[in-house]
């Protein structure tokens, strides 16, 4: 095994810290994220390491609970997008012909739509969007990128000997796709999924910032929205929320770059 460079290692560390915070955060958070006290917009202190927000809620506890929310939402969106994208891409690439044409036209149409705009429209028009709705809105166009990569891989794999062999042994198409095509196209998809986490976290933060689709009052996007609202009074909320998002996104980007270089040495 070749060792990861300094950048990807840092990325792996940041992502691990994020996942730990998501896993353990709610257990180690000193307060409830929604418990209100009379000490509002307080600067960081020994009792409140990151200070308090405008309702007197402990910011560190909110950030830790928000980490679980961010991890949960991005994991769900990436998993759903990956599943749909892999299926569509593998089927399109392996079948070719009319099926391929139809599926790829659908991708073209979804790509003709600026992604964030579709997310905004899908979330905004619901009166009280829940977490499930948010995940749905982010996955609606999230799978297209994976489908295109999967299709490209499947097109090449279709002509490989082991696939031809399976076909001449009389294996049905679904079995060939499931047992021979899909396992072999996962590599590039995993690289893309790593960067995909960064994208979902940024988009979720953007939607929450716009005041639409806040999954919870302590989601990182919601904290960012509060922080920038009170930026003129105090800066600690905006700094905490913005740094959390930026660090996690940086971690996923670094890790994704490292994995891509590993998979495709030409690009480094």
């Amino acid at each position: 095994m070749k060792r990861l460079g300094p950048g990807p290692t840092l990325g792996a560390v940041l992502v691990t810290l994020f996942l730990l915070a998501a896993l353990l955060g709610p257990a180690i958070a000193p307060y409830s994220p929604t418990a209100q006290r009379f000490r509002i917009l307080e600067h960081p202190s020994a009792a409140h390491w990151l200070g308090t927000d405008q309702n007197g809620c402990d910011l560190l506890s909110q950030v830790l609970h928000g980490a679980r929310l961010a991890a949960g939402i991005s994991l769900a969106v990436v998993a759903i997008s990956l599943a749909i994208g892999t299926t569509v891409g593998a089927v399109a690439g392996y079948s070719g012909g009319l099926v391929d044409d139809a599926l790829m036209r659908l991708c073209d149409i979804l790509l003709a739509f600026p992604g964030i705009l579709l997310n905004i429209a899908l979330v905004a028009l619901v009166r009280r969007p829940g977490i499930a709705h948010l995940i749905f809105a982010l996955a609606v166009n999230g799978w297209v990128g994976y489908a295109r990569v999967a299709r490209g891989q499947a097109l090449a794999l279709r002509e490989r000997e082991f696939v031809q062999a399976a076909r001449s042994l009389g294996a049905p198409a679904w079995r060939i796709v499931l047992r021979h095509i899909v396992p072999n196209l996962l590599g590039p998809l995993i690289v893309q999924a790593t960067a995909g986490f960064a994208g979902v976290i940024l988009t979720e933060a953007t939607l929450a910032f716009l005041g639409i689709g806040q999954a919870a009052p302590y989601s990182w996007g919601a904290l960012l929205d509060q922080g920038t609202t009170f930026l003129w009074l105090t800066q600690h909320i905006a700094i905490a929320a913005g740094l959390c998002i930026a660090i996690v996104v940086l971690g996923f980007n670094l890790l994704g770059d490292g994995l891509r270089d590993r998979l495709d040495p030409k690009s480094s």
């Binding site: 960064a198 940024l202 933060a205 953007t206 910032f209 716009l210 996007g221 960012l224 929205d225 920038t228 930026l231 003129w232 800066q235 905006a238 929320a241 913005g242 998002i245 930026a246 660090i247 996104v249 940086l250 980007n253 670094l254």
Partner: peptide
């Protein structure tokens, strides 16, 4: 450029305003 890629845009704007307006 990695920093630019990782900064949340909704954060950058208010920070710019805070720095170069306030």
């Amino acid at each position: 450029s990695l920093a630019g890629l990782s900064l949340p845009t909704p954060w950058l704007g208010p920070l710019l305003l805070f720095a170069f307006y306030i």
